[in-house]
Design a protein around this nucleic acid. Structure first.
Lengths: 178, 178
DNA sequence: TTGCTTGCAAATTTTTTGCAAGTAG
DNA sequence: CTACTTGCAAAAAATTTGCAAGCAA
């Protein structure tokens, strides 16, 4: 739940493009706007929507997401997980760091300067920058410490369970499972 | 097929981590290294591998990809498509622009400077930057021109078929299909 | 009314898992 | 030899599509 996005304006934009403002669409969009900054995936969005209206089907959720992405009113983002997440684009860009080991995410500040820098890079090729959340992969301080300590056989990096899916990796596995 | 990556060294690294160097793994890794810069997805990799050995199953391909990603020897990347692509990490970073309309991709240069800039940003949070390819979304010059010209009902952006999947979007659809 | 939208179910696509047989070290 | 790996097939997860009925405009 982040900065302000004008729900009514957003809905209106849909209508202006010639699409009907139906109950399900309204509900899906409201949910999306209520969870700014959450990067929901289709399943999570579905669950939230169905909490409010059990009759909405997942086909409608997928179709609405596709529609909004197609109109440029929604960003499809991916966090090395193998499925899509979505965000209502902010007027400004966001920059995240995330740890490949534990999945932790950190927000960078100075977004205006970084964004204008990106805009410059793109401009040199004639591209127009679209607002988006930019993710940079790395290893967080905690996990770096754990990795330095690899001799301890009982230590799992960060003391956390490494997710096998999701792009996080776990070097310590001898004798364990992948 | 991009810069040089030491195949034998790469295979050796796997063995050092305690994994067996089997025929299928060798073949999968060779194929990955043969196609540096291609960002293959699992299906494409499978097809290439099976051209050389029909008996390799897709489960092995997926398991090998998962293994390499888990070891940090392979990057899982995603281009807003809803499935994963993979790349053998280069010693240096790469920066791509891609057009959400037509999917065109452009490479940025000055990668060293950009990389050290990113490293600085991460360092401030104590993160260690990992080698990876960055994708920045925007609208290419051709598509910008087409969009400016939206009154012509016969014009499809860029004169190209917009992909409904894959994050490219197509604003022109009145009367057509989604 | 018209025809865009929806829900449901079936179909696809992508990825994971169980298990007996195969094989690297 | 041992136990890590593989291929196959079934299962699970993620997404798309066909179609008759529903409902915005």
């Amino acid at each position: 739940m982040k900065g302000p996005v004008d729900l009514e304006g957003y809905l209106e934009r849909l209508r202006e493009e010639g699409f009907r403002l139906t109950g399900p669409r309204r509900l899906i969009i409201e949910t999306l706007v209520d969870h700014l900054g959450s990067h929901l995936n289709a399943r999570e969005l579905m669950d939230l929507v169905q909490e409010r209206d059990r009759t909405v089907g997942f086909a409608t959720v997928y179709r609405t997401l596709e529609l909004l992405v197609g109109l440029g009113m929604l960003n499809r983002i991916s966090m090395e997980e193998g499925f899509s997440r979505y965000e209502v684009p902010d007027e400004q860009m966001h920059f995240h760091l995330y740890c490949r080991f534990c999945g932790k995410t950190v927000h960078l500040d100075g977004e205006e300067e970084k964004e204008s820098l990106f805009r410059t890079w793109m401009g040199e090729s004639g591209f127009l920058l679209l607002p988006q959340t930019f993710e940079i992969a790395g290893i967080c301080p905690d996990c770096r410490r754990c990795l330095a300590d690899e001799d301890d056989p009982d230590l799992t990096p960060c003391g956390k369970i490494c997710r096998s899916r999701g792009g996080r990796f776990c070097r310590r596995r001898r004798g364990g499972e992948a």
